[in-house]
Write a protein that binds this DNA or RNA. Structure first.
Lengths: 201, 201
DNA sequence: GCCAATAATGAACATTGTTCAATAAAAATC
DNA sequence: GATTTTTATTGAACAATGTTCATTATTGGC
């Protein structure tokens, strides 16, 4: 009835995503363009718009896979039940991930496109999954268990830590403090834990 | 000997910067282009490249003026000597600034250009000036006055707050929490102050 | 009045993401 | 086997970006 496709839509998406990830890892997010992805997978530019809604859609899918990767890396950290220790271990794993995949991680927070619409639900869920790990680590701090406050505390701490990572990623942390990112992150977590009982309303 | 200039280079820069600020305030950073600035001041595109090194140079100069504006706004906050109160007042002033100049503030943290080089010294100094205000507010926390620890605490809090506004700038804060940036910043400062005595080694 | 110096222009270029008529190829039909 | 139909695939074209630079306009000095 019709011409046979070289790859299914899903196969095409997978090809494109892998190609995109390679470009990002090798040369950074800035070098990612539709033409380069298309050339790398041996298809034309127009074909990409058959597999993805637009360039932003492709980016969002790469980001989602980055979050999956991160979630997997943080999930292997074993818990002792002592918040301070577990938190340190989690931070260590996070730092290792950033070091291993700097461009992928940077890309998560860079806004190359003017699209200001909030991400779709399937993306937000992946973000939430990562948060949950931090929440679970902080939960034992609250007795009796108060999930509401644990959530709030976890997200606030994560935001603070994001300040560390984002500065470190742009090599701007050195302007603020001579200490390495890992040490600063640990201080942040510790100061935060110390203030937990009184600080989080 | 030569043709007379309608405006000096400095006058041209001032004209362009004001025009750029108007465009940003009215329609947002995304709508700022060299052609629109040129059209607005009645000059050609090429003339802008006579007054500025490139588009990034123009952006950096607008940002510097935003920082001056911010520093001025925060400088008028009067101190009581009580860190908790002064900190709240500072954050309040900061919030008011953001509300008054949302697009200018957003622009400070958005990275529209691929330029990854670190900003020049004259720009970093303006960042440092704003940062100093926070340091001075936190200093009274430590008795007897320990400038070393005050600096450390101020920088750590500054890093945490940077996490808040850098996420807010990229419209990513909503992914983490539904609360507005101002409320999150206040929580951050409060949690941090509460943990100060024990947390900062 | 001409020359030289320089202010000012704007067309041209290389890049983006995006679109869509044209084309190629294979299955279905006769 | 020839024809038709269907659709996978292409790539030229478009609009918009920052950037450059040969060209043009203007004006003071001789």
């Amino acid at each position: 009835m019709a011409r046979q496709a070289r790859h299914s839509r899903d196969e095409l998406r997978e090809l494109a995503l892998v190609a995109a990830e390679d470009i990002i890892a090798e040369e950074g997010f800035e070098q990612l363009t539709v033409r380069r992805v298309a050339g790398r997978i041996g298809y034309s530019v127009g074909m990409l718009y058959n597999a993805f809604e637009n360039f932003e859609d492709l980016i969002l899918n790469v980001d989602a896979r980055t979050l999956d990767l991160l979630h997997g890396a943080l999930g292997t950290v074993e818990r002792t039940g002592v918040p301070a220790e577990d938190l340190d271990a989690l931070l260590e794993a996070y730092l290792q991930f950033i070091t291993a995949h700097p461009n992928r991680w940077l890309m998560l927070f860079s806004e190359r496109l003017p699209g200001v619409a909030s991400p779709p639900d399937w993306y937000l869920e992946r973000v939430a999954r990562v948060f949950t790990l931090l929440e679970e680590t902080l939960a034992p701090c609250f007795v009796p268990a108060d999930p509401q406050r644990a959530r709030r505390a976890a997200r606030l701490l994560w935001i603070g830590l994001h300040g560390v990572w984002s500065l470190a990623a742009g090599d701007k942390l050195a302007i603020v403090t001579p200490e390495p990112a890992g040490a600063v992150a640990r201080q942040m977590a510790r100061a935060f834990l110390a203030g937990l009982p009184a600080g989080i309303a």
